[in-house]
């Protein structure tokens, strides 16, 4: 939890600051009809959960490169883990970002 617990928009409902930034990127890039706060860090991004598709994956890759400076590669199995949830995607971004 956070010290700013009295402000509804910053209770973060479990999102860390980097996760919230990635959640914002997701919602803004893909024009999703969900609130940034509503994306649970462990919710699945593709298939169930947020229900993203392959077009979204491509769009998201471009946005991640613009915002964080590194390029995504599809090294198949690992890629599924990276895109599994907001938490895993954020972890990958934090480990590889160049800006």
């Amino acid at each position: 939890m956070t010290e700013l617990g009295n402000s509804a928009s910053q209770t973060l409902d479990g999102q860390t600051a980097p996760e919230r930034a990635v959640a914002e990127l997701l919602v803004n890039t893909l024009q999703l009809e969900v609130a940034v706060d509503a994306i649970d860090p462990d919710m699945r991004l593709f298939g169930e959960g947020l229900g993203l598709d392959s077009i979204d994956a491509l769009e998201l890759a471009l946005a991640i490169t613009r915002a964080y400076g590194f390029e995504l590669r599809s090294d198949d199995e690992r890629n599924q883990q990276i895109f599994a949830s907001l938490r895993s995607l954020t972890g990958h971004i934090e480990a590889h970002r160049t800006k």
Binding site: A57, L58, A61, E71, L72, R73, S74
Partner: peptide, 8 residues
């Protein structure tokens, strides 16, 4: 090989 993302 992989060929999905621009970098691929």
């Amino acid at each position: 090989g992989p060929a999905f993302y621009p970098s691929d």
